[in-house]
């Protein structure tokens, strides 16, 4: 699939055309940042921030999803299918997060119909990062500001135009009418990649970390590291790969709706059993679970670490806990 050149005007026209036929979501400006919203015009797109506040995982795994409805007569009503959706302006780390969610819920012998329906209906148009945030570390966890994983089309900002690299058939279809990229543009794109990658300096020896975590369950480091944690759910709920949920029924005037909502292992009652026993009640055991899950448990479950290096957990932690520093301290303690 050949890379193409799309001028910024042409791209805006493309977005507006897509809006006419399908739901289009993009980062929009917020009081002090950017967030995901359904847009009705290409002028709403706001790409000045590296990360949106909320991760993109909601496009496959919404924070609150209606599973079914029923009334006193029974007769469950299944929700409307999600419908065709275009996600524009997603960053490569968030796209890798979605790839993880897809793998976790629909890979191998797993088949979550709700996630699958969204995966099939969604087109992901990514925009490569040109300026990483201080908390970014995608390179340390196998990603890149120009990573194509999980995307249908990757756009690289060349100034007046974008270099559009199709990654899937869907991406090829969107971009095939535009002219093929010339040598100069390709060279510029690869220079931009080198430049932005050089700005991300954090490195994590994930192999060594894995070995340490494998027999680090009873390490004293967890109690020490978790002391400052305020036990909120920011790090997990904003994580592009955290995928835990709770199921809850709401009943209004005889009609019942069943929802699947995001949940977080950082909440004390997340692990409470029906008997009342809570195996993970202590803050340090919950803190340990998050780190173990990111860098060890999911390696066992689906074969890869589940941190994409977006840095949202570090950037938003009210107690100033930085995941890269946490990992560093774990490696130094053992």
């Amino acid at each position: 699939m050949n890379p193409r050149i799309i001028t910024k005007d042409e791209l805006n026209r493309l977005i507006d055309q897509l809006i006419n036929t399908t739901k289009v979501y993009a980062p929009v400006r917020d009081k002090t940042g950017a967030r995901w919203a359904k847009i009705s015009s290409s002028t709403e797109v706001y790409l000045e921030e590296v990360n949106t506040r909320d991760p993109a995982k909601g496009f496959f795994f919404p924070r609150c999803e209606l599973l079914l409805k029923f009334d006193q007569q029974g007769c469950p009503v299944e929700p409307e299918p999600p419908g065709a959706t275009v996600v524009f302006g997603i960053r490569p780390c968030d796209a890798r997060g979605l790839e993880f969610i897809k793998k976790f819920y629909t890979g191998q012998d797993r088949n979550d119909p709700y996630v699958r329906a969204r995966v099939e209906q969604t087109v992901l148009i990514g925009v490569a990062c040109s300026q990483p945030a201080p908390t970014c570390f995608c390179l340390a966890v196998g990603g890149s500001p120009h990573s194509q994983t999980g995307l249908d089309l990757l756009l690289i900002d060349l100034g007046n135009a974008y270099l559009a690299q199709p990654v899937s058939e869907k991406g090829e279809e969107l971009s095939r009418t535009y002219p093929e990229a010339d040598e100069r543009s390709l060279k510029l794109a690869s220079e931009l990649r080198e430049k932005v990658e050089a700005e991300i300096r954090t490195r994590i020896d994930t192999e060594r970390l894995l070995a340490i975590l494998k027999d680090g369950f009873n390490s004293a480091v967890w109690a020490e590291l978790s002391k400052r944690c305020v036990n909120c759910g920011i790090c997990t709920l904003l994580c592009p790969t955290c995928h835990c949920f709770d199921i809850t029924d709401e009943s209004v005037r005889g009609k019942v709706a069943r929802y699947r909502v995001w949940d977080s292992c950082q909440f004390p009652f997340y692990s409470r059993h029906a008997s009342g026993h809570n195996p993970r009640f202590s803050p340090s055991s919950r803190f340990r679970n998050r780190v173990m899950d990111k860098f060890y448990y999911t390696v066992e479950q689906v074969g890869e670490i589940s941190c994409v290096g977006c840095g949202r957990c570090s950037a938003n932690c009210p107690a100033g806990i930085n995941i890269c520093q946490t990992v560093q301290e774990i490696m130094e303690t053992k």
């Binding site: 400052r228 950037a315 930085n322």
Partner: peptide
């Protein structure tokens, strides 16, 4: 100080 974080971190 918490290097790499926008806010300082508590220290006991």
């Amino acid at each position: 100080a918490s290097p790499g974080s926008p806010v300082s971190t508590p220290l006991f």
